[in-house]
Design a protein around this nucleic acid. Sequence first.
DNA 1: TTCAATTCCTGAACGCCGTGTAGAAGATGT
DNA 2: ACATCTTCTACACGGCGTTCAGGAATTGAA
Lengths: 239, 239
Amino acid sequence: MSTVNSVAVSRRERLRAQTAQEIKSIALALMAGGGPDAISLRAIAREMGMTAGAIYSYYATRDDLITTLIEDVYTSLVDAAEAARDAVPDGDPGGRILAWAQAVREWALANPEGFRLIYGDPVPGYQPPEGGPAQEAEHRACAGLTGLVAAAWPRAGSLQPDGRGYAWSDFDPGLAAQTQQEFPGLPPAAVALALRVWGRMHGLVALEIYGHLRTLAHDPAALYRDELTDLIRSLGLTA
Amino acid sequence: MSTVNSVAVSRRERLRAQTAQEIKSIALALMAGGGPDAISLRAIAREMGMTAGAIYSYYATRDDLITTLIEDVYTSLVDAAEAARDAVPDGDPGGRILAWAQAVREWALANPEGFRLIYGDPVPGYQPPEGGPAQEAEHRACAGLTGLVAAAWPRAGSLQPDGRGYAWSDFDPGLAAQTQQEFPGLPPAAVALALRVWGRMHGLVALEIYGHLRTLAHDPAALYRDELTDLIRSLGLTA
DNA sequence: TTCAATTCCTGAACGCCGTGTAGAAGATGT
DNA sequence: ACATCTTCTACACGGCGTTCAGGAATTGAA
């Protein structure tokens, strides 16, 4: 046993973690190169000079590996969105929304396969585990959006169609509790709005990534920009 | 040769068309039961009491079959949307938009695998042909949305963020020509708005179908309704 | 240093898959 | 009745995820 960083970690464990990491990065490279379908245990093993069966020492099944990949990729997306948001001062809630949304789109364009992995059918026969594959990252994304909406709520609240139609019980208990704790006084309708904002940011990007916009519109960025301008204005803010 | 419906059609051709149709419907049934991945030539052949190779007499390759399925499914979606729209009188453009959007969501909920087939990664190694697999249906969908927006344009036009930023050359030539012919005087910004409306209708439905909304919100229909109310209001209309 | 235990990996197998090819079986039109 | 054209079977090839018995290497202790 060697103790590095005051954590007992054997050489075996180090090598094991390293191999597990190598499997993941090769899988991501394969995905980036040939689409999610290119992620096959045999291809990964071939790339590593191993046999396919050897991977089963690190991931119980192929779906477990995919789930881990989704977690990693989703986390990187949320990291990018949060970083972009935090580069805009608190005093500009509209700008923070814009920054978040643009970061999501740019990340998606830079990692289209990652976007498919998170928001589409990831891989041939993949069945996500209960509760979704990357619950934590998704909660972070939701929390981020709720925060953006919370900052706009003083003006946005009165503009909503039917703010009285929601109760906290309409939402995931964890999300509801976290929101109530982090933004006391914020009504449940704000969470509904946050989810709607999510959908609004998602729609055009999903269409674009899956190629439904490419032939029809030559400048999807302009469409997205206008959509966000409209969104921000509908929240009573300015960009 | 027998002439039915004043069209010369041999018994061979009839049987052939019938078998091709049976292949399609079995493929759709397999998809509905086990997801798009369940569409395998061998499974279809098994279901039909045939060998996989026999299907190659009807579809040159598996991707050809998938492409045909996408066309069928997409057409059924657009049919549903158009029918719902036409059930609302012309004088109620907001209601027509609402009807279209609700029809899309309900169709998607009733045919989630079909939605995945159209808007997601359809099937393991599927590569869509150039121009998209179901160009005609997609054009019909776009035309429908443009028509909905055109009806709202008298009021919606002045509410758009940056209507001067688009030219006809920014869009697919076919779509542009068709729009200019069908709605003379309509500016290209209206097409941009139609595509944005498409994205807005798509976002929440895509999130819901792919399971990202299910755990977070217990009533996605309410979210969608509010989103559409907001959309229709943003066009200067009422539902 | 020696030795048993643990861990990691190979190699082969099983049953799926899409895709070709060769040839049999059958319907068709003359 | 016969030649043609279609449709289907049978088999092969390589790829996939997964399992399993066994070999090889590393490990911690004797």
